[in-house]
């Protein structure tokens, strides 16, 4: 049903160079299909409105030979039903098409383990902590490998926007947000900040480098390794320095607080009977506001630990490495 307009849209879009950016992610095609459908639908209705306006003005213009209107009804319930029902039906069609694509945009593609990158926005640059500990001011990805970006901000709201991926996600201070997709086309694509953040908002630019395969990514990741403390090392250090290990074991043995071995990504039973997924925002909350959610079987005794964003990201990276409880 939407094949025809898509094809037409394709022809039109191809005709306007620089109009639509390249498609470089798994979601781009779906987005462009919805765009094409809406484009032709809108073009049709705009043409209808303009054509009727022009036709009526020309045909029914007041002129010396025609000063009075012709008799015509001042309402018609059948017409009202018609022009209520058609837009309503179209709303359902648009909603269904768009929501289907959107839900795909929020789900990681199954298959290979995702490439997880911690993204930090700050005035006015981006920082990317890649798996294996490599940090960089450019984002490095692997074509065909599902990717999960976990975004944070150290100051104000920023927004990571890659037109070629058709994706955008705000980085909000005080919480983590996520963006999932699979890059499909090797190349280098601009990353822009889309949420206004002050003086150099328009130059908060970098690039996403999509490597053709894992080997190319690994080769890049090995360059200059060891010069800086990796996120996991930050987390391990914080865990020792802040005294976390006094109450939380990392090997599954019991303590004042729950052991942290293998908790990452699992559902946790809470004292009030609810459950919560142990994800980035849960870990952040458990550190800065420990009383908010208490694990079942434990008391509310932990003091808040004031950590900065990078330290929290470090702890998360460290917890992710504490695999499966026995």
């Amino acid at each position: 049903m939407i094949q025809m307009p898509e094809r037409l849209a394709g022809i039109l879009l191809a005709a306007g160079p620089g109009f639509m950016p390249e498609r470089a992610s798994s979601v781009a095609e779906g987005v462009d299909h919805v765009f094409g459908f809406l484009f032709w639908l809108s073009a049709f209705f705009l043409a209808l409105i303009v054509a009727l306006t022009v036709f009526f003005v020309v045909r029914y213009r007041s002129r010396p030979s025609r000063r009075e209107p012709e008799a015509s009804p001042d309402h018609d319930n059948r017409l009202e039903v018609l022009w209520t029902a058609i837009p309503l039906a179209l709303v359902f069609v648009i909603f269904a098409l768009s929501t289907k694509v959107y839900l795909e945009m929020t789900e990681l593609e199954p298959g290979a383990a995702p490439l997880r990158v911690q993204v930090t926005g700050r005035k006015w640059s981006w920082w990317f902590d890649h798996p294996g500990g490599k940090g960089a001011n450019q984002l490095h990805l692997v074509a065909g490998r599902p990717t999960e970006l976990v975004l944070a901000s150290t100051d104000v709201i920023h927004s990571l926007y890659v037109p070629e991926f058709r994706l955008k996600q705000d980085a909000v201070p005080g919480r983590f947000t996520k963006m999932v997709f699979t890059p499909t086309l090797p190349g280098t694509y601009p990353i822009l900040c889309a949420e206004y953040c002050g003086t150099n908002h328009s130059t908060m630019l970098t690039v996403a480098v999509v490597h053709p395969d894992q080997a190319a990514f690994d080769a890049w990741a090995r360059e200059g390794q060891g010069a800086e403390e990796t996120l996991v090392q930050v987390g391990e250090r914080v865990f020792a320095e802040k005294g976390c290990s006094a109450c939380h074991s990392v090997d599954g043995s019991p303590g004042v607080g729950p052991s942290l071995k293998g908790i990452w990504g699992k559902d946790r039973k809470l004292a009030d009977g609810k459950t919560v997924r142990a994800d980035e925002n849960y870990v952040r909350e458990s550190i800065v506001k420990p009383g908010a959610k208490i694990s079942a079987g434990y008391d509310d005794v932990m003091p808040p630990i004031p950590l900065d964003d990078r330290e929290i990201q470090g702890v998360i990276a460290y917890l992710q490495g504490l695999k499966e409880a026995p």
């Binding site: 919805v34 648009i94 909603f95 098409l97 768009s98 889309a194």
Partner: peptide, 16 residues
């Protein structure tokens, strides 16, 4: 053009 921004799939790239 509001339809493009009410529809999620197209709003994500077009937002801001």
């Amino acid at each position: 053009t509001g339809l493009f921004l009410g529809a999620l799939a197209t709003d994500i790239p077009l937002h801001d």
